[in-house]
Design a protein around this nucleic acid. Structure first.
Lengths: 276, 276
DNA sequence: CGCTTCTTTGACTTTGTTCAATACATGTGG
DNA sequence: CCACATGTATTGAACAAAGTCAAAGAAGCG
C-alpha cells in the first residue's frame, strides 16, 4: 500500500503452480519426477509420456498464440506476460472474452473440442508452457487427479465468465471500469504484486471490448475517477488512491461470498414470489 | 417446420443421457449395472457406491432448488422442466445467469466449491436427478471417465457463458432477443421438438435479465419483430416465421464454426495489427 | 526525429431506460 | 359461471446514458 510496493508487476515470472501441477515437467518449473501437491501423479505421468510433449513457448507482443478455427493441438499455462482471448463478429468487430495472467491456463476452453473457439494474442512478450492437447486429453481420461485439476481450472474460467456476464447486464460504465480495476488489483495481489499501483497491459479499446464499452467511454470514466481523486491515471500507469470508495462503487454485483442468503420458502405454494 | 411439428415441447421428459452417463443408476433412466457409452464405468461406480446417493427430486413452479450461499450438497441433471440460475445484487436486483433445460446439469458450476454461487429456481414443474456432491467429487477424483464427463458438461456451460458475454458486449436489443430466440429454437430442435413454435417458460422480465435489457424493451422488440412479420407473439407462445431473416439479424456474433480464420501473420513484427 | 498509434476531450445523436397508464390472462372465490 | 384480483404484458412520452463523429494532444517505436 505504500510507495515501496509500487514495483512493476507484469514482467515478472511466476513459479507457475498450474504448470507444475498439470504434469510436472516444465523446463524451468519443477524437475521431472518431482511434482508438488498431487501425490502419485509423477509416476503415472511418466507412464503416459506426457512430459515428452511439453515445451516452452515464447511470444512477442502482438503475436498470436492460436487462431480461432485452428485445430486444437495444445493447451498453455502462462509463466510470464499477458494473453487476451478474443472472438470476432462477421462485420469485423472484436470482443475480448478474457485476459489471462501468469499462472492462468489458455486454450482450456477448447480442450474438449476439435477447433479453437477464440483467438489468443500476446499483449506483451510472453512465456508459456505448452501441453500437447491429445496427450492431455488422454491423461485426463486416464488420470483422475489431472482431471480434477482441469475441472478446477475450467470452473475458475466459468466463474469469471459469469461475473462478466452479470457485470455487462447490470452495471453502468463507471461501475464496470471500477470492477475491472479491482479485479486486476486482486489478481496482482494474488501474485504478490502491488494491488494499488500497476500498469495496464491492454489498450483502452481492449478494456472497452472486455467490459462492453467504447474506448472513448473508458477514457472518460478514467478521467472522471481521477477528477474525483479515487485514482491516478498516467497513460497506462494506474494508482488506486481510495480502494474503499472504489469497492463501494463496484459493490453492486453479486455476492460471491458465503452469504447468509435470505431465507425464502423452499417448499411453499406455486404462488410464492420467485424473487425479491 | 410444418404445422404438425408445433406440439408443446416443454412438458415432455427426456431420456436424460447426462444423467445416465453420470452414474448410470437413475430410477427412471438406465437400470443399474448397465451404462451406455462409458466402458468400465459401471463396475467402478459400483465400487464407489455413488448410486446409493442418487434420487429423484420434484419441484413445483417457483420453488428453489438451492439458494446462493447454501453448502453444496448435490448436483442435478434435469429430466423434465426448466430451471433458471440467478444471482442478486446488494440493492436487490436480479440477474439470470443461465436457463437450464432437460438434459442439462444444474449446480455443476458449484461442484468444486463449498457454497452455491447462485440461486436455482424452477420456472415450471420440474423433475431432476440428484447426485450427492461429495460422492461425485470423490468419484471425479478417482474415476477418470467421470471426470471427462464433468469436464465436458462444464465446458458446455463455459461456452454458453462466453457467448452471452459477447452478446451483451456487442449486440443491440433486437439482435439480443433474436439470438436468444434462436438459441431456444436450437435447444428444442436438439431435444426433438419444434424449433419454429414453442412457448416460453420465462417472463419478459427474466428474458430481459438474461440478455441485459428491461422487460419493456423486450416487449417492444417482440412487437417490432411481429410487425415485421418475422415472428408471431401470443403472450408466451412464439412462432418463428422467417428463420433465415432472423439468423441474418443475429449473424453478428462470433463464428463458433470451423471458420477458415483470416490468415494473419503468426511470427511477424510486433507492429502487426492486433485485430483487423 | 518523424511517424504511427493511442489517448483525451468536445459536440451531437442514438438507443434503451424510466415512469406511467392501460390492457390482457389466468386463476379464485362468490 | 362470472366478477374480481393478481401478476404479466403492451405502449407512450420524457429522459439519461453511452455511442458516434471529429479533432487535437501525448507516447512509443523505428
Amino acid at each position: 500500500m505504500t510507495q515501496s510496493d509500487d514495483r512493476q508487476p507484469q514482467r515478472a515470472a511466476m513459479p507457475c503452480s498450474t504448470c507444475c501441477l498439470m504434469a510436472g515437467v516444465c523446463p524451468d518449473c519443477a524437475p521431472p519426477g518431482q511434482v508438488r501437491g498431487v501425490p502419485g501423479l509423477t509416476s503415472v505421468t511418466g507412464a503416459s509420456g506426457i512430459e515428452a510433449a511439453q515445451r516452452m513457448v515464447r511470444l512477442r507482443k502482438g503475436e498470436f498464440l492460436y487462431l480461432m478455427g485452428d485445430p486444437v493441438t495444445s493447451v498453455y499455462a502462462i509463466r510470464a506476460g499477458t494473453i487476451k482471448t478474443h472472438v470476432t463478429t462477421e462485420d469485423g468487430r472484436t470482443q475480448v472474452v478474457a485476459f489471462h495472467f501468469p499462472g492462468d491456463m489458455v486454450g482450456l476452453d477448447s480442450l474438449v473440442r476439435p477447433h479453437y473457439a477464440s483467438y489468443a494474442t500476446a499483449l506483451e512478450d510472453t512465456k508459456l508452457c505448452l501441453f500437447a492437447a491429445d496427450a492431455l486429453r488422454v491423461a485426463a481420461a486416464t488420470l483422475a487427479p489431472l482431471g480434477s485439476q482441469l475441472l478446477l481450472a475450467l470452473d475458475g474460467q466459468l466463474q469469471r465468465a459469469r461475473a462478466v456476464q452479470t457485470m455487462l447486464a447490470l452495471m453502468t460504465a463507471e461501475e464496470r471500469l471500477v470492477t475491472f480495476l479491482l479485479w486486476l488489483a486482486d489478481g496482482f495481489a494474488l501474485r504478490g504484486f502491488s494491488s494499488s499501483a500497476f500498469v495496464l497491459r491492454m489498450s483502452r479499446e481492449e478494456i472497452g471490448s472486455y467490459i462492453g464499452l467504447t474506448l472513448e467511454t473508458v477514457s472518460r470514466q478514467f478521467s472522471r475517477l481521477a477528477e474525483g481523486g479515487l485514482i491516478t491515471v498516467r497513460h497506462r500507469t494506474i494508482t488506486l488512491l481510495d480502494k474503499p470508495a472504489l469497492r463501494a462503487i463496484a459493490a453492486r454485483p453479486m455476492i460471491l461470498a458465503h452469504a447468509p442468503a435470505p431465507r425464502l420458502r423452499m417448499a411453499g405454494g406455486a404462488s410464492a414470489p420467485v424473487h425479491g
